[in-house]
Structure formats: structure tokens, C-alpha cells
Write a protein that binds this DNA or RNA. Structure first.
Length: 425
RNA sequence: GGAGAGAUGGCAGAGCGGUUGAAUGCACUAGUCUUGAAAACUAGCAUGGGUUAACGCCCAUCCAGGGUUCGAAUCCCUGUCUCUCCGCCA
């Protein structure tokens, strides 16, 4: 959520920022709501104040044993008027809130303008895509040959966009998860965190998936529904909802491995082949809760922490700065890591690292107490995948494939593979 | 699933329907004392919002949402969560 003060003080400018981030702001509507809000709030509070002083004087008169009937008569119609004013104020504030909740974050000044991923900016590349002197296969072919990936079984058990893994490839996914968690906890200073995979509405409102992106989520139940988490970002970031964090505990750095569930509505034709885009996938997520001035540095560091995993696995990748049109709703700035996939002859997203500024914190009421002022201040939130495990599995398979269809294992994974050095049929 | 108890400020914990945003203790901040620290003493110390050039004034908030009342932390209803006991269970 944007700072309401900013919205009031400089609505024209906010409108431009919204346009840049692919949203619109109806200034006429906003202005009329704002001016009504102002009038009615003042009116309501005046009536409340009036009621309070009168009620107080009734109490005092009663204590002295005076006749309070005339006083009671004099407030009789105040109540109705107040009730009406309060109801009207409630409605307007709900309307204003509804608008505010659908406005995206203001983009960082260094985010390039652009429509879609075509306009994302290359920051740097790492590693060289390997040259193969044989015909490369994608992970679907490799996985089926090795009898470790079964899309038909996934489709039978659940439906399209589900998969089953088995044998050494299933273990490889677990090994990758373990390796990522160990690296982030032991070397990068994150605290391992286990969280619910079902969350309530409030949590999704806090991180910004709701109210706007409900169709991307799996929902369970009607009256007080649960939602399957689309990313660990949701439960982990909500750890600090309604909290005031003491300065000594800042920054908070969490790492969490969870399955993620996305309905992928609106992605009908995209990535139908293979494990790239599934309804259910594993991800190791990094989340940092930091002081306002420190989120840019934290964003850089968190991205580097994710890059470390790719480097340790010796997977070629590139770092992209997302353009305005491709940057997510809650983000001020997003850096994507794209891994090289020989089977697709392309770089594909494997991590998305975002700085949210105070946008999520305002929705979450997540604050820290600044010892200099003694006052609570909104935190900044930063997160990113470190990494998407399913896509990392694909990347390892495709990059480490051998001519005979076997897959060599990266050195760092060997301790997790129980003596296995290569996966073959 | 059944029975009961509870939810109050950073924490602990009071609070006959009436001048209670809320006693007290702890923690925290500042001061006095001390060579310094501790102790003791003194003072300060919730959050969000409205309005104002500012000092300030005002409003809301005692789990959440409704209700009763001139007036609700206090009474009533609904929900959520926590605890205890019984049943079931990985």
C-alpha cells in the first residue's frame, strides 16, 4: 500500500507513477472521495466529541445527585445523527481503502520503462553456455529416459501441470533443496523457517496477492477460506505482521523451503511442455526484514546469495533488471536470475529478487522501533527465490547431460546423493 | 468432537457501566547521587488518525465484528485464538 499522505499531497504525481507501473488512478473519483471523507470525518469527530463531553457531564451530575433528566433530553437526537455520520464515514473509508489496496507500488527511479520482458535490461552474465558435440535433450526426454519424471502419472493422479518424480531424480530434487538450505543458513546467515502451506486472507492481503490476484491462487473453503501458498514469501513475511521489532533483532533474515501452488490461470498456452510451469513446485525462499535505509543493499546482497547457489552448481546464468511493465505489483524493483537451459536454447527465470520498500510493511503493519526517535517505523521487505528447486533440477539435468543420456552430478551435491556420482538408467 | 476458563500497553498484571488511554510492577529513556557502575530516588514513556503555520486541540483503539446505553475495558450476541480436562489421532 502506498503512503496515504503521499496520495493526498501529490495525487497527480502518484497517477504518473501508477501509469508507469501499468495501473491507472481515477483522480476525479479520488478527489471527490477525499473531500467527502474530510468533511464527514470532521463532522463525525465533532459529534463524538460533543457526545463525550455531554455524557461526562451527565456522569458528574449524577454523582452529585442532581436531576439528570434535562441533560438526557438534550442529547436524545445526537445519537441518531452520530450513527448516520459514522456509517457514512465507514463507507467512504472502505471505498478509499479498496482503491488503495489495488494500487501497485511506485517503481524505483532506476527501473527502465518497458512493456514486457522484451524490454528487461541485461545487468550481467555469469558462466558460458557449454558447447555439446552431441544432440542435446531437454529435461522431459532425459527424465523419461531415466524413468525418473512421469508427467502422465501426474496427470492421472491430479491433472495437467502436475508431475511425479522418482528414484535418483527425486533424490536430486531433495539434494538441491538441502544444499540450498544449508548454504543459506551456514554461509549466508539466514534462519531456517518452517511455515504453514495454507494461509488466511489477511496474510495474502499483507503481501499483496489479494485483493487483486485471487485467480492465481488455489482456494479452500468458502466462509473463512484458506489459500494454498503461491510462495513462501506469504507465510514468512507475515511472521512480522502486526509486530514491532526491536532494533537489536534487525535485520531479520529467513530462509524457508516450501511447496508452492499456483493456479496459472491465464497461462494456458505457455510452457505446457515439461516442468517449467506447474501447479505445484518446490522453492527455497529468502526473506529479509530490514530498516528503511538498508533495503537497496539488502536487495543486492540477497540477489548475490541466490547467485551463489547457481555459481556453486556451475550453472550459467544472467541477471536481468525487470522493466516497468514486467515488475510485479508490490515491487519497487526486481532482479531476475535466468539460468541457461540447453534443452530450450534459452535463459529461463529461476529466481526473482524484489525490493518492496515499505509497501508490504504498510499493509502488514510491520514495524521496528527506531532507538533514535523511540518511535515505531515501517520496515522494508526484500525477498527472492534462492532458488526455485524444480527449475534448478531441470537446469542441472540439461546442463550436466552426457551423450548417453546420463546426468553427471555437480560436486557440491555429492554429499547429498549417497555416493552417487551420476544418474543413469 | 464434548466440558470448562481466558484474551487489557514492549512484558507481567489490576480494573463497582460514569471526569479510565486505562492502577501497579518490570523493561526502557533522562536526571540526581557516584571517580565510574550498580543500587536508591525523581521524571518521562502506547498506537493509529483528523485538524493546525506551529504550540496545541480533537477522535479512535483494552482479541475481532455486531448490539444495549446519554455513556462500555466493564453488560448481551457472534466469531477467532489460547489454556485445562475427556475422546480421537500422525
Amino acid at each position: 500500500m502506498l503512503d496515504p499522505q503521499l496520495l493526498r499531497a501529490n495525487p497527480e504525481n502518484v497517477k504518473l507513477e501508477m501509469n508507469r507501473h501499468g495501473a491507472d488512478l481515477d483522480l476525479a473519483l479520488l478527489n471527490s472521495l477525499e473531500s467527502r471523507r474530510k468533511d464527514i470525518q470532521v463532522k463525525t469527530q465533532t459529534l463524538q466529541s460533543e457526545r463525550n463531553t455531554r455524557s461526562k457531564s451527565i456522569g458528574m451530575a449524577k454523582a452529585k445527585g442532581e436531576d439528570i433528566q434535562p441533560l438526557l433530553d438534550s442529547v436524545s437526537q445526537l445519537g441518531d445523527e452520530l450513527k448516520a455520520a459514522e456509517a457514512e464515514l465507514n463507507d467512504i473509508q472502505a471505498e478509499l481503502l479498496a482503491i488503495q489496496l489495488t494500487l501497485p507500488n511506485i517503481l524505483s527511479a532506476d527501473v527502465p520503462d518497458g512493456k514486457d520482458e522484451e524490454q528487461n535490461q541485461l545487468v550481467r552474465t555469469w558462466g558460458e553456455p557449454k558447447k555439446y558435440d552431441f544432440e542435446v535433450h531437454d529435461h522431459v526426454e532425459l527424465g523419461e529416459q531415466l524413468q525418473g519424471i512421469d508427467f502422465e502419472a501426474g496427470a492421472k493422479i491430479a491433472g495437467s501441470r502436475f508431475v511425479t518424480l522418482s528414484g535418483p531424480l527425486a533424490r536430486l530434487q531433495r539434494a538441491l533443496t538441502q544444499f540450498m538450505l544449508d548454504t543459506h543458513t551456514d554461509s549466508h546467515g539466514y534462519r531456517e523457517t518452517y511455515v504453514p502451506y495454507l494461509v488466511n486472507k489477511e496474510s495474502l492481503l499483507g503481501t499483496g496477492q489479494l485483493p487483486k490476484f485471487e485467480e492465481d491462487l488455489f482456494k479452500i473453503g468458502d466462509e473463512s477460506p484458506y489459500y494454498l501458498i503461491p510462495t513462501a514469501e506469504v507465510p514468512v513475511t507475515n511472521l512480522v505482521r502486526d509486530e514491532i521489532i526491536s532494533a537489536d533483532d534487525m535485520p531479520l533474515k529467513f530462509v524457508s523451503h516450501t511447496p508452492c501452488f499456483r493456479s496459472e490461470a491465464g497461462a494456458y498456452g505457455r510452457d505446457v511442455r515439461g516442468m517449467i510451469r506447474q501447479h505445484q513446485f518446490e522453492k527455497v525462499e529468502l526473506v529479509q526484514i530490514v530498516k528503511a535505509g538498508e533495503s537497496d543493499a539488502a536487495h543486492q546482497q540477497l540477489t548475490a546469495d541466490a547467485e551463489n547457489i547457481l555459481q556453486a552448481l556451475n550453472l550459467p546464468y544472467r541477471l536481468m533488471l525487470l522493466c516497468s511493465g514486467d515488475t510485479g505489483f508490490s515491487s519497487t524493483k526486481t532482479l531476475d536470475l535466468e539460468v541457461w537451459l540447453p534443452g530450450q536454447d534459452a535463459y529461463r527465470e529461476i529466481s526473482s529478487c524484489s525490493n518492496f520498500g515499505d509497501f508490504q510493511a504498510r499493509r502488514l503493519k510491520a514495524r521496528w522501533r527506531n532507538p533514535d526517535t523511540g518511535k515505531p517505523e515501517l520496515v522494508h521487505t526484500v525477498n527472492g527465490s534462492g532458488l526455485a528447486v524444480g527449475r534448478t533440477l531441470i537446469a542441472v539435468m540439461e546442463n550436466y547431460q552426457q551423450e548417453d543420456g546420463s546426468i553427471n552430478l555437480p560436486d557440491v551435491l555429492l554429499p547429498y546423493m549417497g555416493g552417487l556420482k551420476s544418474i543413469k538408467l
